[in-house]
Design a protein around this nucleic acid. Sequence first.
DNA 1: CGGAGTGTTAGTCG
DNA 2: CCGACTAACACTCC
Length: 286
Amino acid sequence: MPELPEVETIRRDLTKHVVGKLVQRVEVRKAKLIQGSRAVFRRALIGARITRVSRRAKQLILELSSGYVALVHLKMTGQLVWRSRGGMLTVGGHPIISVNTVPNKFTYVTLRFSDGSALFFNDVRQFGYWRAVPLAELAVVHAHLGPEPLSSAFTPQVFWAALQRRGRTTIKAALLDQSVVAGIGNIYADESLYVARLRPSRRVASLRTVETAALFRAICSVLRKAVAARGTSFNSYVDGLGRQGTYWERRLVYGRTGEACRRCGTLFKRTVVAGRGSHWCAHCQH
DNA sequence: CGGAGTGTTAGTCG
DNA sequence: CCGACTAACACTCC
């Protein structure tokens, strides 16, 4: 599901609601969604306060007063729903699941807070996971991840160097590789490649310096705009406050197969690259 | 009804 | 080591 802009949006919303909350109870209804020891997971959370909500790549990080962090990955269909004591719902994540009742049959993890509010984790496909990690080990757990594209660690030089490691593959596969850049998924890979005028199937080794530079700028600009729009994942639902992400209407190529390219009017193609549906303009992208 | 497709990624196989 | 492919699962769409 969510890529960097969506997870970042959830992080910001969640921060407002859960920071400072004391975890009173933890309910796990599907043990396999908890990575590692369930006992450690419960110990890390129960009785702890949430001190901060951060993000790395597509993972949410609930920082806890116990010295642990709880990592949450939503994968394809994960969803976090916060419910106030009064019953108000706030949603982040995948829109498939009806939120009118929580918990529902897709609710697999629940955190109950001492003030009567609760955080529900729903996941239709059950690909997502939660994991407790000592704060001191977080860097090791995330060692395989590349730079955050919206941070100062992401520079043209760093990007170029990371791409060198994936010279033989396609640029699409490289963008989806979280060790190259952290947080890009299928939608923003296609959007960035369109802006940079590069075909998804281009071999990384064939990229010229100016093309790599254009792609670097495209990634930054696409992700920045998507974050500002609160992402795309929330297109088919409106939460209790009437908010929804608006990038979906503004997307340039993703899911626009057969529609006209706004630059040249050519109809967009859809092919499979790196095993993923890829959308692109055969005239503008080379 | 059957088959393909879905915003992810860890693991396997060559 | 590297890259391609698939499984994990439930549901929608054609």
